[in-house]
Design a protein around this nucleic acid. Sequence first.
DNA 1: ATGTAC
Length: 392
Amino acid sequence: MSAQPSRQGSLPQSAATVTVFAAPTSWIESDALAQCHQVAALDGMVHVAAMPDLHPGKGAPIGAAMLSTVLYPFLVGSDIGCGIAVFPIRLKRAVPEKLATRFPDLDRALDPERDADDPAWAVLDGDVPAGHVEGLGTVGRGNHFVELARIDTVLEPDHASRLGLAARDLVLIVHSGSRGLGERILRAHTEVHGAGPAPDPASYLALHDAAVRWGSLNRRLMAARVAHALGAEPTEPIVDECHNSVEIRDGAYLHRKGAARGDGRDVLVAGTRGTPSYLVAGHAGPEANHSVAHGAGRKMSRADALRRGRAKHTVEELRRTPVGSLVVCGDRQLLFEEAPTAYKRIEQVIGDLVEHKLATPVVSTVPLVTYKTADLAPVADRRDARRRRGRP
DNA sequence: ATGTAC
């Protein structure tokens, strides 16, 4: 393998450069590469850096950092401020079967009035960004999750110890975003300007920044909800990086869609529901648009994962994974869509980051319990519920 | 990924 970025853009001189940070043997869908070149041809585009977890998105590729003199809201997408945070958590015992039943309902929002006495509110410092209360403290759908995980391998002992991490420690990993708020911000732009640039970048950025703060608050609220439910004290995150954002960098707009800030920051690169994740130290330079990958990256579309997964897996094997972890997910379709086999191998993604000197792995984590969406109620409970409603 | 429409 070469240490050089393996594929260079070779399209019209007017188009921006496209650099893909993946080994030739790493699976990158041609549709995703085509999307990178479409983005490279946009007015004002300077450089597109594709991460090893690159895959096709709706209109724009996912797993890319895109530098442009023009701000394009659609390159950030609707889940502005989506990201992954890591919170240390101390538990006396961590038996997945016991803990899985104790997770709170993270599909149900925290209501400032009805849930006024919920201790999770203690993480709120000041006002709720944009005053947007709907969906606060909820995980959402798609690839979002809240996971109780254990530190497995320590690869950089000094760095791990600076983060207060040692082998066998427990952490909560929270992957979620700005829910309806970011969606509303992009829709308001798109209704008037479509995929065109933001005519007033400062006003878009003000809304964007609020969504980024909201996403981070949401992750903290969820970690606090889960910590309280499991009988632990909430903690401050040791890592919290968003991967859908835009920032001003060297006088241009650096859009990241499924790519995390990778310049001197620690980032949790998520595996799948049933494989390890890696906390890495990012040190990406300008060629990579100062970015690192955000996860394993989809290898199959949701439709393919559903079709092939139904033929290949049982619900039971997806709910209890090969590493012994449990997946809380009452939605069977989501379980298949999010099957580990629908994603690339995280080791390959991490290997590509290392090969191209974008990041150094610090620790790996293995899941114990991953919460996706509220579980199906046990049969007895459902029967009771029907009886309470006066049905047979 | 989302809220909403089908």
